[in-house]
Amino acid sequence: MKSIKQLSLWLKAIALLFAICTFGSCDDGSDCSMNNTSYNRVRLYSVNPITGKESVATYNGQLSVALMIEGRDSIVINRLTSASELTIPVSYAQQRDTVVLIYDNMYTDTLYVEHTNTPYFISLSCGTGMFHNLTGLQHTQSFIDSAVIVNHTINYDPNENIKLYIAQ
């Protein structure tokens, strides 16, 4: 009888242990990002001239994005339609990127994005990545009315980094 009672207590203790694990969100370290590249996330906005209220804007034509690499442009986003958000790569070694927005293959705006670069060790299993901190932003004004950095940190989080206010 005594041994049965002891066995029962043992089983309860083991069950408790597994219950804690089950509800304690055990993980196996497999929460690595699927894409080891961090992007500068840019969203288009417009401001209602009457109410002054801002809202997410959509460019209804075709919008392409090119990066200037060693004096030549390299298309990274090609003829995106109904664009309201752009994910733009950031250079690992440079501290100033030149980003060209091409509207309907006819007009352009240029963004000059200044940033720092931090090579980052994530974990032994997830590897390494490059994170950035935005430090400055200039732009031309064909379609862009103004631009503002809303989140300086560029990492794997899908946060918006830059608001681009386009002219009405």
């Binding site: 390299s74 250079s91 690992y92 070694a93 440079q94 090579p119 390494t128 990545g129």
Partner: peptide
């Protein structure tokens, strides 16, 4: 770690 290779610009950054 092996150097990080920029997929666009192609530069290598040591870590």
């Amino acid at each position: 770690a092996p150097p990080l290779i920029d997929p666009i610009w192609g530069s290598e950054v040591p870590l």
